[in-house]
Simulated scan of single mutants.
Amino acid sequence: MTLSPASICQASFVGLGAAIMVLTLLPAAMQKHLLDYGARDTERAASVDEVQGKDNGESKSKSEPLPESGVLERTVATVVPYLQVPHSWFISFYVFYLICSAYWAAQWWSWRQARSGGEMPDNLFGRIVARQQTSDPVLAAMPATPMALLQVYVAFGLEALQTGRRLYEYICVFKPSKANMNIAHFLLGLMYYAIMSVAVWVEGSQAIVSMKQHDAKLKPDIAFAADKEALTKIVVGTIFFLLAWGGQFRCHVHLAGLKKYSLPEEGLFRYFVSPHYTCELFLYGALSIVTAPEGRLVNRTLLSSLLFVIASLGVTAGRTKQWYSDKFGAERVAQRWRMIPFLF
């Protein structure tokens, strides 16, 4: 049986998350070179502090470089410095996602406007939607639209709102950074956002096709038609999304206002090491509620994106807590969760 585009998105998210988890099985010295960057790169952070005279006496201890005893470890230590890109390239994730979203919106528009004689134009958006219909036996057997078109539009809008805010933060809130990151982080991020740009609408393909079959031009009564169940999911999911959206922005403003390499202690940082990552989980969890098809609590494709988010941000949160413990003392962060309340 041919995999549907939604299933491909789900498998891709799982694969990306698994790739991150594989790195955590490597020797500690290799993990340091592959996973740490910025403040968590303890050797770099220490050298910056020495040059700039920023050792303010708060540091309880300094991490010693881990021994690289094996040939593989030494090879990684030698090669990785040549595979670094500026951490400021993070901004390209959000530019890239917005470009992808604009591309799919244009494809959707042209697919609708170019319809002639009952034939759908052969653009990429149309092919993905058609394949989702023909390759998913559950959708093919359903006479009713399992997801309202309004849910698709709200998901598009919320994800664009999140990405636009992150772009604003990198331009107007965050301070310029000289930190680097492994190019693998960069490539994984681009892959994630490319897949996410499809994931926010692919399970709504039946609603999109139904609208096309009803009328070549989108009418308000079609776009905003939604039953009580769909409206409830939109309202509940959007409320959670906006709360997490605002919470993450406040976390980022606090981090941006800190003295370099100091311990954040205000707001949610009193309870979490990385509350901005906690908010990220709630953002995509809320989005999966907004887009949940009829009879389901969540959208499986968007929920699967959480596997990658948990894997990638969970590893970073864990290493951040260790870095805080080494630099400021374990007792100062001992009572804080890394990212997930009551669990991690």
Rank of each mutant, 00 (worst) to 15 (best):
G295K: 06
K259Y: 04
Q151T: 14
T278V: 04
W245D: 13
F344L: 07
L35S: 02
S325W: 07
P275V: 07
F344Y: 12
A292R: 10
R44N: 05
Q113R: 14
V152M: 08
G285Q: 01
G53C: 13
L283A: 05
V152S: 12
G164E: 04
T320Q: 09
P341A: 08
L34G: 14
H252I: 06
F282V: 15
S101W: 02
R165F: 00
F328C: 06
I239Q: 01
V154S: 03
T24S: 13
I195P: 01
P137T: 12
A19G: 12
M30I: 15
V154Q: 05
P341Q: 13
A207F: 07
F174Q: 13
M30P: 08
S135N: 12
A286D: 08
L16K: 03
P86M: 06
E294V: 11
N56H: 13
V152A: 11
Q10G: 06
M120F: 01
V235S: 06
I234E: 00
L231D: 05
A199D: 04
P341V: 10
L23G: 00
V253L: 10
R44K: 14
S210K: 10
F240T: 05
A216W: 02
P65T: 11
I91R: 15
T316P: 01
L306F: 08
N56Y: 11
A46L: 11
E169G: 04
T232E: 07
S4T: 12
N180A: 04
E58F: 09
G17Y: 00
A140Y: 07
Y97P: 03
V290I: 06
K32P: 00
P275I: 06
C9V: 13
F249H: 14
Y192C: 05
G246R: 04
S288A: 14
G318T: 01
L313T: 13
V198Y: 01
L190T: 00
D136N: 15
R319D: 01
M30L: 12
Y82R: 10
I183E: 02
N299C: 15
T316N: 07
W337V: 03
L281S: 08
Y82A: 01
H276S: 00
N123S: 10
C279M: 10
E266S: 08
N56D: 15
V22K: 09
C251N: 04
F96L: 06
A130K: 11
L23E: 05
T75A: 07
R270G: 15
R115L: 10
W201Y: 09
S305A: 15
F342C: 10
L313Y: 09
M1N: 11
G285N: 03
T24I: 12
L26K: 11
P293N: 08
A45S: 15
I8H: 03
T42D: 14
E50K: 15
K217A: 11
